[in-house]
Simulated assay, not measured.
Amino acid sequence: MKKNRIKALINLLDDPDTLVFETVEKELLKENHTIIPALEKKWENSYDETCQERIENLIQNLQFKKTRTLLKEWITTEEQDLLEGFLAVDRFQYPDINQMVIFQKVEKIKNTVWLELNDSLTLLEKITILNHFLFNIHGFSINHKNIHSPQNCYLNQLLDTKRGNPVSLSLFYTILARKLGLPAYFVDFPKNPLIAIVHRDLAKRVHGKNTLSDVLFYINPSNKGSIASRKEVGYHLKKNNYSPQERFAEPQPDSLFLQRLLESLQYSFQEVGFSEKKDRVHELLKLFAKR
Rank of each mutant, 00 (worst) to 15 (best):
K2E: 13
R5T: 13
K7C: 07
A8I: 09
L13S: 08
D14G: 15
L28P: 09
L28D: 07
L29N: 02
L29I: 08
N32R: 11
E40L: 15
E44S: 15
S46A: 02
Q52A: 03
N57R: 11
I59K: 10
Q60T: 12
K65P: 02
T69N: 12
T69E: 15
K72V: 01
E73S: 12
I75D: 05
I75R: 03
A88L: 06
V89L: 07
D90M: 00
R91D: 08
Y94E: 13
Y94M: 08
P95W: 02
D96W: 11
I97S: 07
M100S: 13
I102W: 05
V106C: 09
T112I: 10
L115V: 14
N118M: 04
N118T: 05
T128N: 12
F133S: 11
F133G: 04
F135E: 07
S141I: 03
S141P: 04
K145Y: 10
N146W: 04
S149W: 00
Q151I: 08
Q151N: 13
C153F: 03
Y154S: 08
L158N: 10
G164I: 03
I175R: 02
I175C: 04
A177W: 00
K179F: 01
K179L: 05
F186M: 11
K191I: 09
P193L: 02
H199P: 09
R200Y: 11
T211Y: 02
S213G: 05
S213L: 06
L216I: 07
Y218H: 08
P221F: 01
S222W: 04
N223D: 14
G225E: 11
I227F: 13
S229E: 00
K231M: 11
K231S: 11
E232T: 15
V233K: 06
G234K: 11
L237F: 09
K238P: 03
P244N: 05
E246M: 10
F248I: 01
A249I: 01
P253K: 10
L258E: 06
L261N: 15
L261G: 00
S264A: 14
L265P: 02
Q270P: 05
G273E: 07
F274Y: 14
S275Q: 12
E276L: 13
E283I: 08
A289V: 12
